[in-house]
Design a protein around this nucleic acid. Structure first.
Lengths: 128, 128
DNA sequence: GATAGGGGTTCCAGTCACCGTAAGGTCAAG
DNA sequence: CTTGACCTTACGGTGACTGGAACCCCTATC
């Protein structure tokens, strides 16, 4: 299979697939003409990576998860730890964003949004 | 005032302050020895920027907000639009993260986290 | 055989908002 | 006079790609 077909099947852009090869996540073969040639296992790995990325795992986490996936002797505890750490990071991020949102939505509600210059948003930014 | 003092007063690293000068957010004077010399207005602007950044505004948004702040003839509607757009983006981000969190926390709960290889997290990533 | 098109290839630069490090100039204190 | 804390610039790296240029390959059509 060529990269375009793989792109369609995995919903990953060709650019991303090349990038994943560059950083060693996959190792597709090469045809005589220099084109990348993908096996089903490559497609499977790429789909795995796509889902892991969609859950927000970093590339390095994905590398770890892929290695665990391919290791029949893995301990599920190792997988769980990676996932739990990521989950904690997500929770932190959500809390951060919520705090921003609360402040911001308050300020936006206060702002008249008309032609006059008076603005509580700027007032807040200017004086904390 | 030198950059170190400004850094302390604004809680911004010197590196960041230099960067903000480089991209034209501030224009501190220079002393004879080449050191940056900051006026109170510079410190005020930097504090403004620090708070805007803390609310998650992009640098370009910050540039816009600072320009509006310094424009006595601004319309609060312009400020409000920037803030509202950012707020919408934050809401989107929160929704995205919540969706990730929900999926992930479910998977993490399902995973035994022991020495055995069987793992619902990997199973999900492998088969969507 | 020439050409048009739709693949594919590499490499370089850019994104965003900085941070790390190196090599060096400046200044006040001991 | 030296020490150490401060300042300067400049270059490189971060994460995870994306865009674009310049070029090669393959098939179909005229």
């Amino acid at each position: 299979m060529n990269i375009g077909d793989v792109a369609k099947r995995t919903s990953l852009p060709p650019k991303t697939i090349r990038y994943y090869e560059e950083i060693g996540l996959i190792r597709p073969h090469r045809a005589a003409n220099g084109y990348r040639h993908f096996e089903e296992t490559d497609v499977h790995k790429l789909a795995f990576l796509g889902r892991a990325r969609a859950l927000g795992f970093s590339i390095e986490d994905c590398r770890t998860l892929l290695a665990l996936y391919e290791d029949d002797a893995r301990a599920s505890a190792d997988v769980k730890r990676v996932a739990q750490d990521h989950l904690d990071a997500i929770e932190d991020k959500i809390a951060q964003l919520r705090s921003m949102r609360d402040t911001l939505s308050h300020l936006v509600r206060e702002c008249a949004g008309d032609n006059r210059p008076d603005c509580p948003i700027l007032k807040d930014l200017a004086k904390g």
